[in-house]
Design a protein around this nucleic acid. Structure first.
Length: 450
RNA sequence: GGCGCUAUCGUCUAUCGGUUAGGACAUAUGCUUUUCAAGCAUAGAAGCGGGGUUCGACUCCCCGUAGCGCUGCCA
């Protein structure tokens, strides 16, 4: 049987970084095993789902390069399927109408909690005539009269067991108009012929409920693999309150390759730190995925991103940061000291005239007068120098001059500030060569007030 | 409270019973030096606790403990 996996985001928000990781592992698993990776939009919650979120999720997945097979499946377009399945279950007596009100259910849960009992709803309408009459929540009738255990062998975690007698009669829908997650997901996974359900650890407790639904529908459940969670620094599940959790939030600062590498290596063992998607596909095994949650370490992401940025061609880099006016020769100077893509704006003196306070021209070990005087001499050297020659030639001349002066800083500091308006920058000679002789002299003259 | 999952440097992790417990990020220091980076070198930094099993346990088992997840007529 052909391996088929899926990622099933809900369009009630932007693509979460955890969903992206889950999508990546599904994608890697499919690619590795020559299977298919599908995309299903879980938009049964009509109040919270929007088309805008759906589109942004699709865009984010594409940006990450996680391409899916076939058409996008939308649950909102499959209501007939669910209704048929639900009717069948009702007809066969495997599902029933639970006529309890919300208040009654809440009261029961409260009681159970107070008495330190497990919280579940074992509905008495399950086998009654009342349960056949429509009204209220539709539930799956869970057989709990024995010591029955619902068991599955998680590919990542091994055998996991739940006692059937502690489970609620699983809620499938509020009437036929509002179908619920556990039910629609199972119906879809059956129809889509999903062989492996690879999803976040937060779904392990849904798994026994879903297995029961598979059985009621007369189907064999797929293989399950529950991925560890991505954690915030406080080790709780990464969520909005911790800051940026949407993939789109990372778009302006990070290369998709860096994000993929980071998410992939965070919860799975590979042979090296930096690797391409192709290499990940080669090495990927579900058995190499970790069991415990991993803290999202932005520092490591930054490092990875800087490694990838250094490999970019000038064209690629300019496109990635969205600043077409960066001179090509400035790119290596920028990537060498950049962590996040948006840091490129700190180097705007390469394409914009710098603004700065004249006092900045003063070298810290000297006076402003001395600094400006030296700059005049530097200007003369540059003016007489032919930029067609190697820049090391210019450096050599400047170095000789600095030896005569006895202080390299006195030469380079005022020049740096004149060219960049900043205290920190790449080597002024490198910058001069990016700017060209004319522009360089122009900025030096400006600094001198000429 | 119930159920489930997890447990090695600050963080991500390697180790499939025998290692000076390895690597990466981060941190510190040094080299270089006109500033900032990059690069290179060096350093510090870890097996949750208690019982077993075994000649030998970070590794296997049990019990604790802690953290996390779920506990919706959300997904």
């Amino acid at each position: 049987m052909k391996i088929r996996v899926r990622v099933a985001p809900s369009p009630t928000g932007f693509l979460h970084i955890g969903t992206a990781q889950s999508a990546l592992y599904n994608w890697l698993f499919a690619r590795k095993n020559k299977g298919e990776f599908c995309l299903r939009i879980e938009d049964t919650d009509k109040e919270r789902s929007t088309k805008e979120y759906e589109q942004s999720i699709l865009d984010a997945l594409e940006w990450l390069g996680l391409n899916w097979e076939g058409k996008v499946i939308r649950q909102s377009e499959r209501t007939e399927k669910y209704k048929n399945a639900l009717e069948k279950l009702l007809f066969e007596g495997r599902a029933f109408y639970c006529h309890h009100t919300k208040e009654e259910l809440e009261g029961e849960a409260k009681d159970q909690a107070q008495n330190k009992k497990a919280q579940f709803h074992d509905c008495e309408h399950k086998n009654s005539e009342e349960g056949k009459k429509s009204g209220g929540l539709i539930r799956l009738a869970v057989e709990r009269n024995s010591d029955r255990k619902v068991v599955f062998d998680d590919i990542i975690r091994g055998r996991i067991e739940f006692e059937a007698k502690l489970m609620s009669d699983v809620s499938l829908g509020n009437g036929f108009d509002r179908l619920l997650y556990n039910f629609t997901a199972v119906v879809d996974d059956i129809d889509m012929e999903i062989t492996h359900v690879i999803r976040g650890e937060d779904h392990v407790s849904n798994t026994p409920k879903q297995i029961l639904i598979y059985e009621a529908l007369g189907k064999t459940p797929p293989q399950f693999a529950h991925l560890p969670l991505i954690l915030a620094p406080d080790r709780s599940k990464l969520s909005k309150r911790h800051g940026a959790v949407a993939v789109v939030d990372y778009k302006k600062d990070y290369l998709p390759e860096a994000i993929i590498n980071f998410l992939g290596a965070m919860s799975c063992t590979f042979s090296k730190e930096i690797l391409t998607k192709q290499e990940m596909i080669q090495e990927f095994e579900l058995s190499k995925v970790h069991k415990s949650g991993a803290v999202f370490d932005v520092k490591k992401l930054n490092w990875l991103n800087s490694q990838y940025a250094k490999k970019l061609s000038p064209e690629e880099f300019k496109k990635s940061v969205g600043i077409p006016e960066i001179p090509d020769s400035a790119v290596p100077l920028i990537t060498e000291r950049l962590e996040k893509l948006s840091d490129a704006h700190h180097f705007d003196y390469f394409w914009k005239e710098p603004k700065y306070d004249k006092d900045l021209l003063k070298w810290k070990k000297s006076t402003l007068e001395n600094s400006l005087e030296t700059l005049i001499k530097v200007k003369k050297i540059i003016k007489e120098f032919d930029f067609k020659k190697e820049k090391d030639e210019l450096r050599k001349i400047l170095d000789e001059f600095s030896i005569a002066v006895g202080d390299r800083g006195l030469i380079y500091w005022p020049l740096r500030v004149a060219l960049t308006g900043k205290e920190k920058s790449p080597d002024p000679v490198d910058i001069a060569y990016v700017l060209g002789k004319e522009k360089t002299l122009e900025r030096v003259r400006f600094a001198l007030g000429i």
